[in-house]
Design a protein around this nucleic acid. Structure first.
Lengths: 158, 158
DNA sequence: GTACGATAGTCAACGTGGTTGACGAAATAG
DNA sequence: CTATTTCGTCAACCACGTTGACTATCGTAC
């Protein structure tokens, strides 16, 4: 049972974690837009990352992201439409449709990594490198399990 | 510019923040479901909190949450349907429809606060109270701005 | 007292992201 | 050669968000 009025109410922690996540992602996409990728949405970067350099299929992508193959397929459609992914037939299996990152997608991915590195440096400059390291270590300790699940919209909503 | 291979790649930080948030929210709702509130979705708790003890209107709720009045109205509809909110006419203004938390909603809110306190205690037990305090302080420093905006699904998606 | 602008709420249409169920086409196992 | 599995897609649906248009009401200015 919680005390009547804790000095540090528990509800602040998740809000702060969300605000931190959101700040980083918003900063990323503000930078990304300036560097020629204004269409990229928060979800898209994670999807591109999940497709990876070797390419994959919609079904496998769904498994990696923790969503259904149908949802993965629709997301791929949208990213194909904006030029970040492309589909190709698999010569060895006519059922499969290979999903690959386009050069434009690879550029977005590379820039994202660089921007995330710069943002982390900014946090380290403000808070001190040890504090950022500690934050990461502590979060790794507490959140170890559900790492790479990006069904955020459906999870958070309904 | 980022170094070729940083010891701590920047992309991990947002992922860890999201994983931490998600872990807390998942733990909360697992507990909440056991305590008789299985219908409550992650978003709903934030909405109930935003409605507050005094009640509000859909338009004002939308302003508080950073979403349109139409979106706020639809969310209220859903929470009314599951019994967490109720609508009432405003005797002093026939245009306004008061939105109030029901007793069931208040129960969910009270339990949520208690569970969040317990979860924070659990984090403090594992990491040490000073580390959790530091994490909160650091996040407050870096994320100061966009605190109470809960348009997460639309923001993250598209 | 009436006319008018501002405000509250709703309806409709749409986009994104998610789900399940059904189905055809192709690979694989027997 | 047939039976089963697997991949991709289609269709229908739900949650959440958006903008635009509209009605009803309030408050004010004349």
């Amino acid at each position: 049972m919680a005390t009547a009025e804790p000095a540090r109410p528990g509800f602040a922690l998740p809000l702060l974690l969300l605000a931190g996540f959101r700040t980083l992602i918003d900063d990323l996409h503000a930078e990304l837009a300036q560097e020629g990728h204004p269409e990229l949405r928060p979800l898209h970067g994670f999807v591109l990352q999940a497709v990876g350099a070797d390419g994959t299929t919609a079904t496998e992508l769904g498994q990696r992201l923790g969503i259904s193959k149908q949802a993965a397929g629709k997301t791929v459609d949208r990213l194909v439409a904006v030029g970040y992914l492309e589909r190709a037939d698999d010569p060895s299996d006519a059922r499969r449709r290979l999903v690959r990152v386009t050069p434009r997608g690879a550029d977005g991915l590379r820039r994202s990594a660089e921007i995330f590195d710069r943002l982390r440096e900014r946090w380290a400059d403000t808070l001190g490198p040890d504090r950022v390291d500690a934050m990461e270590d502590d979060l790794r300790t507490m959140a170890s399990a559900n790492w790479f699940r990006l069904d955020v919209p459906g999870w958070f909503g309904g």
